[in-house]
Design a protein around this nucleic acid. Structure first.
Lengths: 120, 120
DNA sequence: AAAACAATTGAACATTTGTTCATCTATGCG
DNA sequence: CGCATAGATGAACAAATGTTCAATTGTTTT
């Protein structure tokens, strides 16, 4: 059995019209990657807690670590992941770094997911 | 240097009032886990494409595989991840399985993330 | 009944991920 | 200055993840 027929299904479209229609609207690869990376950045319990905490208060790394019972190092690593995806921002004040959500969209995103989860 | 002081910061709260306030509002562990699992389920390029495709049309596994240039097996595995998190649902029609987004919240969630990504 | 096909599933494998540990920078204070 | 602290970072290691391959289930067709 050839892969092209059996696994990839290259030839036998069930509904070619729908497939072509979706194909045309499909987002480009860089956008897909960014979407996936953004969701993945949110896809970890520690980072979810950080996002929730920052949706309530602006906090420094040390207080986030306290709150979560995690090390500052672990929190710092996770904050970088969130920073890379522009989910959180920070301001420096002396040797402290105060983190908060980057913008209102992040809270909307989080709340929408919370609503989904609470309906499960 | 002891971990409890240096890494965990158990004693030295920078702003205890804020920490305690957030602590009280913090979601419980099962909710945190579900949020993380839901975001993680969306955090993969293949699954992002599937979600986008299903936001446009109801599709069978074979057509999704065609659309993505992936094997039916890979798609089926990914659909199970999405199904487990109630992100997609399906109806059986003979030997076909037609998939679609589970509810409107999923599209909202996805669109909100798309908006964030397009502002980056 | 037998063959064909859509879909699912488990095992295996390489890759990715999250935490810990150690180290480093930079700021504040005695 | 000298030292403690907040935070960042790289290496390393265990755990989780995504795809492929092979086999299986259930349905339709001949």
């Amino acid at each position: 059995m050839k892969k092209s027929k059996k696994d990839i299904c290259e030839i036998a479209y069930v509904d070619r019209k729908k497939v072509v229609s979706v194909e045309k609207k499909m987002k480009d690869e860089p956008t897909i990657q960014l979407l996936a990376e953004t969701f993945r950045a949110l896809g970890d319990p520690t980072r979810v807690k950080i996002i929730f905490a920052l949706s309530q208060e602006e906090l420094c790394v040390c207080d986030i670590a306290n709150l979560l019972g995690a090390t500052k190092s672990a929190v710092s690593h996770q904050l970088r992941v969130l920073r890379n995806m522009k989910l959180v921002k920070y301001r420096k004040d002396g040797k402290m770094a105060y983190y908060s959500l980057d913008d209102i969209h992040i809270k909307n995103l989080f709340d929408e997911c919370l609503r989904h989860v609470e309906e499960m």
